[in-house]
Write a protein that binds this DNA or RNA. Structure first.
Length: 803
RNA sequence: GCGGGUGUGGCGGAAUUGGCAGACGCACUAGACUUAGGAUCUAGCGCCGUGAGGCUUGCAGGUUCAACUCCUGUCACCCGCACCA
């Protein structure tokens, strides 16, 4: 059949014209919301990797519709961001033109693959009708004290000329261009995400994310429970440290404070070796995050002369050091150092010749001890710790904490690695932050009714070296009036990060055309939440965390019905090149889905990508295997020649038919797409073995295959005179009929298969024993031996144990 | 270093509660039909062995009538996080 493309087009048109996949907000049916991450519409077009996850969820959506659900399966565009902007800089056109063109390409490709998206809900994050609400939500953050401006050392990418969030600069390297990130002091808009750390952790209990996704979130939040303890400075003043090992407090031989923290600034007047200390502080500033972690593992630092701390537990005088392994923005920016029992402290002490005090038995002061790293939790006992000596680590932890708490010099606290969200970008192509700076009133939010604050049309989009957005050059845009006092004022020129628009788009899909609210509470209450959300593993730390934070905030101010609006999160594996490497232009191993669709048809590509392997694992591309899937579809087409009239299933096919219904519907909901296809092949083969099959047999096969291969199945189904599958229902299976009456089972002697016997499912145990013992080969193997026992598992196996 | 994951034929991969390991497909081999075959059909296809049979799920043990599956130890590879106190 070489009119595959025509068939594809015919049914795509049919679905479009009949609005087959429209989701209704006023339906009496049960809702089911399937979401695939909306793509960034790049110039490269759709990737075969997109096809994998979209087909998988398209199949789920299609089956769920046939099963009577009101399915919401939307698609849109996450179109703010650097690539469109870079394209615009190069070609001197407005990024929105590039975005428009790319969206057209993507959409055309998606339609050619027959994805059952409800296109009536389509939008782009760059639409003013959409980003109006992103800006509006920012104002809610601001008005609730959740957005603030702060001057902090931030990650700065010298190439992209913009600030990056901690998440974007993971590993000390710019996420986008790979350039080493440097630290720069800048005034930035921040969202108080750190204050949601505990809620984001707890909220995971109300979700059904895949384990690896949950772990990704937990790791990123990075909770650690410990004690914050006040330390007096000799001659007045004090500071606090954070530790998770308070039981080692008698082993303190020095303290280390962060060179980039506030504490050293406060102490500076009392420091005797100011020059040395200042030099070290400056040195640290110059170091990028990279230097400070990867390259420079050695423990640099300097003694702070003239200042001594007092160990609160035994009042011993202890020196204070500066060391860049202590971070200014984590914990209190100061640590107690117990070199006898901590790897880092040990290394530092060695470099700076600081004595060590052993306080836990068995925690030898040598490098080997740290390899074991196991004094915790194995009942080791304290020594050299006054009245606490002899207690186990666990007991001492509690007892010392209690004692310090009672004396009011320590508190139990939790610390989190996750920081506040740096929300400013010095780029053109993002949502303008709707804030105005007035000399008299300070930062003032725009009036909500003046939103959206549109991006202006300008000629140049280049970011500037001084760290200002290109918007800063457009004076007619910047200059405005203060909404509060009416005086001359200036707009914020920074824009929002790429993650803003994607933090709430799934809510907008629930009510995409609402021009009064970002989404109505009624619509959100009807859909409840995203039942099933698919996206790449690379987004589990950032996007998912941002989105959950955003939603939790909206929930707390009463704007969404649930604290978690995403229930299940699954992740697909990558489609690799046939050389088992990540697809890339430079490697020349890229497969363009358009080429495949044009040569083999959309259904072949869909079936292949479902069949290629475990959905959650990476899988290499194989054009040979793809051809095999085309052959499978050809076989389904040829099967039509065997169809004769008949309203019932062929009797002998009933077991495999019922089994297939069960397996396909179960597998589609358990990410078992490859085994669902395999079962459909088995069913096809079983039908193919028959001289004739009934129309009903054939219709059943086509219905089960329809979610994965929707075009060809509709065409064949129509050709035997049935009404469209997309308007009919999913078949029911009969549990009883899935069981075969007769089957072959194995007979083992001492666990080794020696024969197979034909049995009836109702055969008694004694009958099975008799049948087994009558087999020639079985007789041979038990001859002259004593039969100890015979294990019979009904309908499965017989095992004869002999001695 | 910490955390997680994965190891099954030539390849992609199957295997509810332990119950015939290798489903399904690819590649390959032989044959049929053919002017032709990248079509279709038939048969074969884990390894060793002519055979009976033996061996086989990274490796080594253990539990069991029975282990890819459970337990202990171990190796290899991959992916996150990483001076977070």
């Amino acid at each position: 059949m070489n009119n595959t493309i025509e068939i594809d087009k015919k049914w795509q048109k049919y679905w479009d014209e009949n609005k087959t996949f429209k989701a209704y907000n006023d339906s009496k049916k049960d809702p089911f919301y399937v979401l695939v991450e909306f793509p960034y519409p790049s110039g490269a077009g759709l990737h075969v990797g997109h096809v994998r996850s979209y087909t998988a969820h398209d199949a789920i959506a299609r089956m769920k519709r046939l099963q009577g659900y009101n399915v919401l399966f939307p698609m849109g565009w996450d179109a703010f961001g650097a690539p469109a902007e870079e394209y615009a800089i190069k070609n001197h056109i407005h990024p929105k033109e590039a975005v428009k063109k790319n969206i057209e390409t993507f959409k055309g490709q998606m339609k050619s693959l027959g994805f059952s998206f409800d296109w009536d809900r389509e939008f782009s994050t760059t639409d003013p009708e959409y980003y109006k609400w992103t800006q509006w939500q920012f104002l809610q953050f601001y008005k609730n004290g959740m957005a603030y401006k702060d001057t902090i050392p931030v990650n700065w990418c010298p190439k992209c000329k913009t600030v990056l969030s901690n998440e974007d600069a993971a590993g000390g390297v710019c996420e986008r261009c790979g350039t080493e990130v440097v630290q720069k002091e800048k005034s930035q808009w921040m969202l108080r995400m750190a204050s949601y750390a505990e809620d984001l952790l707890k909220g995971l209990d109300d979700t059904d994310f895949a384990d690896r996704v949950k772990l990704g979130q937990i790791n990123w939040i990075g909770k650690s429970s410990g004690v914050e303890m006040d330390v007096e400075i000799k001659g007045g003043g004090k500071f606090s440290i954070f530790t998770t090992c308070i039981e080692t407090v008698f082993g303190i031989t020095f303290f280390v404070i962060a060179p980039d923290g506030k504490l050293i600034k406060e102490l500076m007047p009392r420091v005797k070796n100011k020059k040395e200390v200042e030099a070290y502080i400056n040195e640290t500033k110059k170091k990028s995050a990279m230097d400070r972690t990867e390259l420079n593992k050695g423990k640099t630092g300097v003694l702070v002369e003239g200042i001594k701390a007092i160990n609160p537990i035994n009042h011993k005088e202890v020196p204070i050091f500066l060391g860049d392994f202590v971070l200014g923005d984590y914990g209190t920016g100061a640590v107690m150092a117990v070199p006898a029992h901590d790897q880092r402290d040990y290394e530092y002490a060695k470099v700076h010749n600081i004595p060590m005090i052993e306080v836990i038995e068995g925690g030898n002061i040598n490098e080997k001890a740290f390899e074991k790293h196991d004094y915790l939790g194995n009942g080791c006992k304290l020594i050299n710790s006054e009245e606490f000596s002899g207690l186990t680590v666990e007991e001492a932890k509690e007892a010392i904490t209690k004692m310090l708490e009672d004396k009011k010099i320590a508190r139990r606290v939790n610390n989190y690695k996750m920081r506040d969200w740096i929300f400013s970008r010095q780029r053109f192509w993002g949502e303008p932050i709707p804030m105005i700076y007035c000399e008299k009133c300070g930062w003032v939010p725009m009036n909500e009714e003046d939103l959206p604050l549109l991006l202006p049309d300008v000629a140049e989009y280049e970011p500037t070296d001084n760290g200002e957005s290109p918007l800063a050059k457009i004076s007619e845009w910047i200059n405005t009036k203060c909404p509060q006092c009416g005086r001359d004022a200036k707009r914020e020129t920074d824009t929002m990060p790429n993650w803003a628009g994607s933090s709430w788009y799934f809510l907008r899909f629930m009510d995409a055309r609402n021009d009064k609210e970002f989404a109505s509470m009624d619509a959100m209450k009807y859909w409840r939440k995203v039942d099933w959300y698919n996206g790449g593993m690379e987004h589990t730390a950032r996007h998912l965390l941002y989105a959950r934070f955003w939603v939790q905030f909206l929930y707390n101010i009463g704007l969404v019905p649930n604290k978690e609006m995403i229930y299940k999160r699954v992740s697909h594996g990558m489609v690799l090149g046939s050389d088992n490497q990540k697809m890339s232009k430079s490697k020349g191993n890229v497969i363009n889905p358009d080429d495949i669709v044009n040569e083999f048809g959309a259904d072949t590509l869909r079936v292949y990508e479902m069949f290629m392997g475990d959905y959650t694992q990476d899988a290499p591309w194989s054009t040979d295997s793809l051809r095999g899937c085309r052959r499978f579809l050809d076989k389904v087409i040829r099967l039509k020649d065997k169809v004769i009239d008949g309203k019932n299933f062929t009797k002998e096919l009933e077991p495999v038919i019922n089994k297939s219904i069960l397996k396909v519907q179960r597998d589609l909901l358990n990410l078992g797409f490859n085994t669902a296809v395999s079962q459909l092949m088995i069913l096809t083969n079983a039908m193919d073995e028959k001289e004739h099959i009934t129309k009903e047999d054939y219709h059943l096969l086509l219905t089960l295959l329809n979610p994965i291969a929707p075009h060809i199945t509709e065409e064949l189904n129509e050709s035997i005179g049935y009404s469209p599958i997309c308007e009919s229902t999913w078949p029911e299976y009969d549990e009883k009929k899935t069981i075969e009456q007769e089957k072959d089972i194995a007979v083992q002697v001492n666990g080794k298969v020696r024969a197979t016997i034909k049995i009836n499912i109702n055969d008694e145990e004694s009958v099975l024993k008799e049948k087994a013992l009558n087999e020639e080969n079985v007789k041979k193997h038990i001859e002259g031996k004593e039969v100890v026992k015979i294990i019979v598992i009904q309908g499965k196996i017989v095992n004869i144990v002999v001695k």
